[in-house]
Amino acid sequence: MTLNSEYAIEVHNLTKRYKGLSAVDNISFTVKRGEVFALLGPNGAGKTTTVEIIDTIRKPTSGKVTLLGMDVTRKKYNIIPRIGVLPQGFSSFDRITVKETLQYYSRLFCCRKTDIDGLIAIVNLKDKVKVQYKNLSGGLKQRLGIAVALVNDPEIVFLDEPTTGLDPRARRAVWDVLLGLKKKGKTLFLTTHYMEEAELLADTVAIVKRGKITAMGSPGELIESNADYLVVMLKSVDENVFDMVRKMGFAPVYDSHGDIRVRLDRTDDVRRLLNAIEAGGASFTGLDVRKPNLEEVFLKLTDETLVEGSAGIKEAQ
């Protein structure tokens, strides 16, 4: 046992198969104590299976997962008091109030010293303490789920898609809570398919595709190492510009505001593109030339379409 290991989580050659299909395919990574680690991937990539093996809900087909120096398959009941989990689609007892829910989970962990009011304050549910679970909105339910995951003052907190299905305001409220936990130095392990979320919260991002990790590093590192092209945004363009750009051999796409986005592999291409538009007598009111963001890196690495509205881009052809 490596109880004093610098790693909170160590995953070695983890594989999970269901009826011959690999949901998780021989992945390995480590998470340092105090680090915020995000598994980023499209639906069905194997994020939830991975996190559920690490947080002891499921058993692996092969490989080894060590949490705080303990093997998850052998020391489940030693690990559980030291971790907090917000499972995907968290739900609780309908007729039980916010405060009673926290008291209940605190009793399950036999925590006499749980600061219930403090937890309620962290997730900003002070005015909802007497509201029954079934009467909470989706965002409030998620915030309660996070508070529940903290009742035993865990060393590692697992959050499986903590903001899926929430409106932007509720999502930001959850992010504030998670940023607060990050500040406190908790080790956070989250899965998400929101780029903005990963970029804002994570120290390390692992991109998962079909059960395999295709890239891993800090958001900055991932962008830097994969930014071998430029993105040109043309705003308020004439109608014929789209065809004009396509005829030049590029692959333009409209974004949700009607602007055109073009991926260019060389700097020279920018000048060539602008000259062609000018020569064709077309016009545009705005121009933005930039390196790709995490979402575009993700799309490049996974060849997948993200969830609609994740960062304002709808298409990823």
Binding site: I83, F90, S91, L108, F109
Partner: peptide, 13 residues
């Protein structure tokens, strides 16, 4: 079905 038992699985119960 609601997933409450999945959450309980991550407690000492």
């Amino acid at each position: 079905q609601k997933g409450v038992i999945r959450k309980l699985c991550t407690t000492p119960i």
